[in-house]
Amino acid sequence: MNPGAPGAGETKRFVFSGREGAVQAGLEHTREALRSWSWLPTADEERLGVAEDLLLMVAELVANACLHTSGGPGELRLRWDGRRLRAEVTDTSPVPPELRPYADPGRPGGHGLRVVERLAGSWGCAPEGGGKVVWLEIGCPPGPPNHRECSA
């Protein structure tokens, strides 16, 4: 952990109130967290790309909970330790997400976890309560060498 990074060691939580508007609400919560941790705004294209990738992956996890579980998403948790950010989405289904075989790119659906697999440093699923938590982790976005957020 890098205690000098803004917000290092902090967890931001958002409890969903149903499926309707869940993806947008999750994205707004994530943007707010990224702003509080000084990931956004940024003029650096690489740092912006990492933040946008995170937003895309969070949208995918929330959308999967909306589409594939009876109760929808439960909670979004974002944990920043100064070196990596972990995003977690809980739901009430104990069934783990399935990484589908490569599908026809022209057909909708079934591609989201492939995107997460390519963009995240790591991802997975664990039982939680009677359901599960699906998580992903990304490293600190690149920045100037004198940027304190990810320094050793």
Rank of each mutant, 00 (worst) to 15 (best):
G110P: 00
D44M: 03
A43K: 10
G106S: 14
P96S: 04
K132A: 05
E32A: 15
E32Y: 15
P97W: 02
S38M: 12
K12Y: 10
R19T: 11
F16W: 07
E137T: 14
G49E: 11
G130M: 07
E28W: 02
G143S: 10
G26P: 01
C150E: 06
P3S: 11
R83S: 06
S38A: 14
V58R: 05
T42H: 11
R86Y: 05
V116G: 06
A65Q: 00
S122E: 02
P73L: 04
V134Q: 07
H147C: 14
E10T: 14
E20C: 07
D53R: 09
V134A: 08
W39P: 02
R148F: 05
S38H: 13
V89W: 08
L76A: 03
P97H: 04
N146C: 12
T92I: 05
W37C: 11
P97S: 07
W123P: 09
V15L: 12
G4C: 10
W39D: 00
L113C: 01
H68I: 08
A33H: 09
L61A: 04
G7V: 15
L55G: 14
G82M: 07
W39V: 14
C140D: 01
E98K: 12
A51S: 04
A65Y: 00
V15S: 10
A63L: 12
P127A: 10
P73G: 10
G9M: 11
N2L: 09
G71A: 13
Q24S: 13
D104F: 14
V23W: 00
N146K: 11
E149M: 14
P127I: 02
L27A: 08
N2I: 06
